[in-house]
Amino acid sequence: KLLSSIEQACDICRLKKLKCSKEKPKCAKCLKNNWECRYSPKTKRSPLTRAHLTEVESRLERLE
């Protein structure tokens, strides 16, 4: 599967780190437990900047 097509777990399953069936409108866990089942939009991760990478590398060197 391509990364862009990976389905996201519902908010509660993601928060509780449960295996989500990803069914809509309610996944199996939410249906069974009568929880409100919501699927928040995916958040875009910002790409690493060179400055951040350099900072992490220098912190790693100090720890070694």
Score class of each variant (00 low, 15 high):
10 C>F: 01
59 R>K: 10
52 H>Q: 07
10 C>W: 00
61 E>N: 11
54 T>D: 09
52 H>N: 06
36 E>G: 11
7 E>I: 11
6 I>E: 09
26 K>Q: 15
10 C>H: 00
16 K>L: 01
50 R>F: 00
42 K>L: 10
52 H>K: 06
25 P>M: 02
44 K>D: 04
40 S>I: 05
5 S>M: 12
22 K>V: 07
20 C>R: 03
43 T>F: 08
34 N>H: 11
31 L>K: 15
61 E>K: 10
37 C>N: 00
35 W>T: 12
42 K>W: 06
60 L>V: 15
8 Q>F: 15
16 K>H: 02
13 C>P: 01
20 C>M: 07
6 I>D: 06
21 S>V: 02
25 P>E: 03
28 A>R: 14
25 P>C: 02
22 K>F: 05
48 L>Y: 09
8 Q>A: 12
56 V>M: 07
34 N>P: 02
53 L>K: 02
49 T>Y: 09
50 R>Q: 05
18 L>C: 11
31 L>M: 14
44 K>N: 08
51 A>S: 09
42 K>Q: 09
21 S>N: 04
47 P>F: 00
22 K>M: 04
16 K>Q: 01
29 K>Q: 07
1 K>D: 06
1 K>T: 15
47 P>N: 01
53 L>G: 02
37 C>E: 01
63 L>S: 03
49 T>P: 01
55 E>G: 09
32 K>D: 05
22 K>N: 06
35 W>D: 09
11 D>E: 03
56 V>G: 02
53 L>S: 02
13 C>S: 00
11 D>L: 06
49 T>L: 04
33 N>F: 09
21 S>W: 02
5 S>L: 12
54 T>W: 08
64 E>V: 10
62 R>N: 06
60 L>N: 07
2 L>Q: 15
22 K>E: 05
14 R>V: 01
33 N>T: 08
42 K>Y: 12
38 R>V: 11
31 L>A: 15
39 Y>N: 03
33 N>G: 12
51 A>F: 11
44 K>R: 12
28 A>F: 10
48 L>E: 02
48 L>P: 05
43 T>C: 12
17 K>H: 11
11 D>T: 01
19 K>C: 06
57 E>T: 03
56 V>R: 02
20 C>G: 06
5 S>A: 11
57 E>S: 08
64 E>W: 06
35 W>Y: 14
24 K>W: 15
15 L>W: 11
25 P>I: 04
38 R>A: 14
36 E>L: 11
19 K>F: 03
33 N>L: 10
23 E>Y: 03
45 R>M: 00
61 E>P: 02
34 N>E: 15
4 S>V: 11
14 R>L: 06
48 L>C: 03
42 K>V: 06
42 K>R: 13
17 K>C: 04
8 Q>W: 10
12 I>M: 10
50 R>L: 06
5 S>C: 12
57 E>H: 06
49 T>E: 01
64 E>H: 10
22 K>C: 00
29 K>F: 05
31 L>P: 05
32 K>Y: 07
42 K>G: 09
5 S>T: 09
16 K>F: 07
41 P>G: 08
38 R>F: 15
13 C>Q: 00
52 H>S: 07
54 T>A: 06
59 R>H: 08
3 L>P: 10
61 E>Q: 13
62 R>A: 14
8 Q>K: 08
2 L>C: 12
23 E>P: 05
60 L>T: 02
55 E>V: 09
17 K>W: 06
30 C>M: 06
45 R>N: 01
30 C>I: 07
34 N>R: 12
52 H>Y: 14
51 A>H: 11
28 A>I: 13
56 V>F: 03
25 P>Y: 02
50 R>T: 05
49 T>S: 04
18 L>Q: 10
51 A>W: 04
34 N>K: 13
14 R>Q: 04
44 K>M: 11
2 L>K: 12
17 K>S: 05
30 C>F: 05
6 I>L: 10
31 L>S: 13
2 L>I: 13
48 L>V: 00
29 K>T: 08
51 A>Q: 12
6 I>S: 12
56 V>W: 04
52 H>I: 04
62 R>H: 09
43 T>A: 13
54 T>G: 07
26 K>D: 09
46 S>I: 03
35 W>I: 15
8 Q>N: 10
42 K>T: 08
41 P>T: 05
23 E>T: 14
43 T>M: 13
46 S>H: 04
59 R>S: 08
31 L>N: 14
13 C>G: 00
9 A>E: 02
26 K>P: 03
51 A>P: 01
18 L>A: 15
54 T>E: 09
30 C>W: 08
62 R>T: 12
8 Q>E: 00
33 N>R: 12
42 K>S: 08
12 I>T: 11
56 V>C: 14
15 L>T: 12
55 E>C: 12
53 L>P: 08
17 K>A: 05
5 S>F: 09
34 N>T: 14
2 L>N: 14
27 C>T: 01
29 K>S: 06
12 I>K: 10
58 S>D: 11
3 L>S: 10
31 L>D: 14
27 C>Q: 02
4 S>Q: 11
58 S>F: 14
23 E>D: 13
5 S>I: 11
43 T>S: 10
10 C>I: 00
27 C>R: 08
7 E>N: 11
60 L>M: 13
35 W>L: 14
39 Y>D: 01
41 P>F: 02
53 L>H: 00
33 N>D: 08
57 E>V: 06
59 R>V: 04
36 E>Q: 10
22 K>L: 06
17 K>V: 04
57 E>Q: 06
30 C>L: 00
36 E>M: 10
28 A>D: 09
29 K>D: 05
20 C>K: 05
9 A>R: 03
39 Y>G: 04
24 K>C: 11
3 L>M: 12
9 A>G: 10
29 K>V: 04
36 E>D: 15
50 R>G: 02
8 Q>D: 05
45 R>K: 07
13 C>I: 07
50 R>S: 09
58 S>C: 15
27 C>Y: 01
52 H>T: 01
28 A>L: 13
26 K>T: 10
24 K>L: 14
34 N>A: 12
35 W>N: 12
12 I>E: 12
4 S>T: 11
41 P>K: 06
2 L>Y: 14
10 C>E: 11
13 C>H: 02
2 L>T: 11
3 L>G: 13
4 S>I: 14
11 D>A: 00
42 K>A: 10
62 R>D: 00
11 D>G: 01
64 E>A: 04
29 K>I: 06
54 T>I: 07
9 A>T: 04
58 S>E: 15
14 R>W: 04
1 K>F: 14
39 Y>C: 02
24 K>P: 07
13 C>L: 06
29 K>E: 00
19 K>N: 07
57 E>P: 08
49 T>H: 07
17 K>D: 03
58 S>I: 15
47 P>E: 07
18 L>P: 08
29 K>R: 11
14 R>P: 05
